[in-house]
Simulated scan of single mutants.
Amino acid sequence: MKKNALKAMCAALAGTVIVAGSLLPAPTAQAAKSYTIAFIPGVAGDAYYGSLGCGIQAVAAQQGAKVVTQAPRSFDPVAQIPILNAVVAQHPDAIVIAPTDSKALIAPLRAAAAAGIKIVLADTTLDDTSFAAAEVSADNKEAGAVAGRALADLLHGRSGSVITVNLSPGVTTTDAREVGFADVMKATKGIEYLPQQFSNNSVQKADQIVSSTALAKPNLVGVFSTAAFNTEGTVAALRATGKTKDVIVVGFDANPPGIDQLRKGTVAAQVVLKPYDEGRDAAEQALNALNGRAVTKKTLTTSVVATRENLDQPDVKRYIYSFECPAS
């Protein structure tokens, strides 16, 4: 009987640890914390940010994190900052954001970081990144140079004027693209590189810029468009002025409309970035920061050139922008 009672007591104590004469429950394995990552892209409806979001989601799924996305309707700090403030009020563990202005987003993002939220900049960046856990973007200056070399090759030695239709001053990615492109054009024999002009992300304004340039410069041979809406306006302007076949357009748009432009021949080449890779890298750095692991402060991704001839090749096709996430 005593033996049975002793066995029962031992069984009861099997889940306890004796510390300083007291009985405490045995420690159990602590479940890994499930983090929430908020993703704030530059603008809604852009498949580039769709691909970037897919990359974030892939890594989050692998590491048990949750992703919530809120996007402004226009690429504008006036539209983005209220969304950022609303997200910060929900206090996610990390924010992955594509800032729409290199200066205007500094103060609200610094405040978010001070509140304990890990900030990762994706695609675009800021003039001051000291408070960000990490930043991930394409090497946009090099991508601009890639665009310049592509245009130079497509011109086959033709001389004439070339213009860049840029987005808005202060957008770090497109500013860098123009710098890289300009360096190549200024070194290309026979090319007059005209001062860049800004569309403020308006199709109509881009149309006006290219239409007036085509009239003022009959020797216009090339247009570099740093963003999707600029390319749409450029194509419309060249169609209206009857110069589609005379002026070579190099764009920066692997969204579905940009791919359609390649297939139709209205755009000769599109520089394709790798937003899915950017998204994966951004999510990994955010989770590294949250988990106390080593963080890579700055990551740059590369680019490829898509043409009608190589569009369906695997090493180009895999980077076409889409809201449909690839199977992980």
Rank of each mutant, 00 (worst) to 15 (best):
A44C: 02
H91V: 00
Y48M: 06
K66V: 09
I40Q: 10
Q62I: 02
K118I: 00
G64R: 13
T69C: 12
I97G: 08
P82K: 11
G116P: 08
V68F: 06
A104N: 03
A107C: 04
A112H: 07
T28D: 01
A61P: 01
G116R: 05
G45A: 13
L52H: 01
G53H: 09
I40S: 10
Q57V: 08
Q80E: 13
L84V: 05
Q70T: 00
A107R: 05
L23Y: 01
T69I: 10
V19S: 11
G53W: 05
L23G: 01
A86S: 14
A44P: 06
I119W: 08
I119A: 10
K33Y: 00
L126Y: 09
F75E: 14
D76N: 15
F39A: 05
I106W: 04
I40H: 07
T100Y: 11
G50K: 10
L126K: 05
A44G: 05
A61L: 04
Q70N: 08
G15L: 12
V43A: 04
Q62N: 13
A86D: 15
Q57D: 12
L126N: 12
V59Q: 14
P99W: 11
G42F: 06
V43C: 02
Q90V: 00
L109C: 10
Y49Q: 03
A114L: 02
A60G: 10
D93C: 07
P108W: 07
A86E: 08
I83D: 08
P72C: 00
S22H: 15
A32Y: 00
A107Y: 03
Q80L: 04
K118R: 15
D101C: 04
A94W: 05
A111N: 14
S102I: 01
A26T: 10
P82T: 13
Q90M: 07
S34F: 03
L23W: 03
A20N: 15
A20H: 14
P108H: 10
I56Y: 09
I83P: 06
S102F: 01
T125H: 09
V68A: 13
I40M: 06
A65G: 06
G42S: 09
S34H: 14
I97P: 07
A89S: 14
V17A: 12
K103Q: 09
Q62H: 03
N85W: 07
G53C: 04
A113M: 12
D46P: 01
H91W: 03
T125N: 12
Q80R: 09
N85S: 04
V78K: 15
I18N: 11
A38F: 03
P77D: 02
A79E: 05
D123K: 13
S22R: 15
P82I: 03
I119Q: 11
V17M: 10
S34G: 06
S102N: 14
A107D: 10
V17Q: 15
G42R: 02
V78S: 12
A47K: 02
A94C: 03
Q70L: 05
G116K: 11
Y49N: 02
L52A: 15
I18L: 14
A20T: 12
V120E: 02
G21K: 05
Q57H: 11
A94R: 08
V88I: 14
L23M: 10
L24R: 14
A26I: 04
V59S: 01
T28K: 15
I81D: 00
A44E: 09
